[in-house]
Amino acid sequence: MLRLLGSICVLAAFLTSAPPAQAAEAGRLVAVTDQAYDSPSAARIRLMDPAVAVWDTAAAQKWTWSPTSANGFSGLTGAWGLPSDVKLRMKADAYVAVVTDSRGLAALIGYPSGQRLWAVNVGSANNPHSIELLPDGNVAVAASTGGFVRVYTASQGSSSGAYVTYPLPDAHGVQWDPTRQVLWVLGGSKLAALKITGTAAAPKLTEVASVPGLTGGGHDLTPVLEDHDLLWVSTGSKVYQVRKSTATIVTTLNEAGIKSISSMPNAQEVRTTPKSGCRTDWCTDTVNFAVPGTATRKITGAEIYKARVWSSRYE
């Protein structure tokens, strides 16, 4: 059912552009992590409008961000250059965004102001890959080379570096589940749910569930916005839909190398897959909509790693 949308349906569903805050909850915009392997200062988060057919135009780009001294990141710009994740969230009834970079940065910023609310350098050797804002204001970070998920006490101050750790080899994904009040984490062939107890200043992590049957190389973990009980999971060789309430796989697709997958509330899929000729073996200049090859948007010269539906919804 998810894969029956043709290019006409995909394009017809894209509404005209709107101010960033309005478009966020409609799920009409898509954020991409545009890396710049040879020129870190050129790396950007780009918020793009799928209703604009040509993404090389100014009309397509609705917002862009990178850390600078002016927006509060003095001393941390060296931890930037390979943005690996970005998500829109809400905090105290205001839009915010969480961002990670493989060179070390983990940050919480105002949206659309881009101003720093919290940030730390997780360390480039740890390779931060995913990030999530928790209801108490703390921030979860998955680091692949470091082999861990950390919950940082971001609620305690803009530079708070205290954390609690859950060991997870090849950690690549974190996703909050508001219904079950758990943090889903993905690494290798393991997808688990963590209960967070203790206090915001001193959190504790306990594994309370896991999902059997995933193949190795777990990579992306996002909500299926058209169904509150499902998660998207991509691994090295498969794409899955997982039912959270039963911790079971309900759909398996034999599709390899999907670096990011998410979907809009009307079930349109948004994907990235490495493209031959891109600077690294994990990047692309193209975002695929609905089904790869059905509808695409391209930024010439970009080194896109992930694409995210720009919605603050956790599920």
Rank of each mutant, 00 (worst) to 15 (best):
A192Y: 05
V10C: 14
A140Q: 06
G147F: 08
P169F: 10
W55C: 11
A51R: 14
G173P: 02
D85W: 09
H228K: 15
E269P: 00
N127Q: 12
S237N: 11
L105S: 08
L5F: 11
L76G: 02
T16C: 12
L105W: 04
L183Q: 09
N127H: 11
V99K: 02
K91H: 07
A42I: 06
Y314A: 05
F289A: 00
G188N: 06
G157D: 01
V86L: 07
V52Y: 13
D101S: 13
A256C: 10
V309N: 00
P135D: 10
S160Y: 09
C283W: 09
L108G: 01
W232G: 01
L117M: 14
I299L: 15
L133C: 02
R297T: 01
A142K: 07
S74K: 14
A53D: 14
V239K: 02
M1L: 11
A92Y: 09
T57Q: 13
L11W: 14
N126D: 11
T235F: 08
A107C: 01
R279P: 09
G137S: 11
G146P: 04
V139M: 04
T272G: 02
D220L: 00
A302M: 01
M1E: 12
Y152I: 08
A295V: 07
D38A: 15
R150E: 08
I8E: 15
S158E: 11
S39N: 15
S158G: 03
M48T: 05
L4H: 06
A209C: 04
S17G: 14
S144L: 12
G114L: 03
G217P: 03
P292I: 12
R150C: 03
A143G: 10
A267V: 05
G217T: 07
L2E: 05
L183F: 12
P292C: 12
W310V: 01
V52N: 10
P223Q: 12
H219L: 09
G75I: 13
P292K: 08
C278N: 15
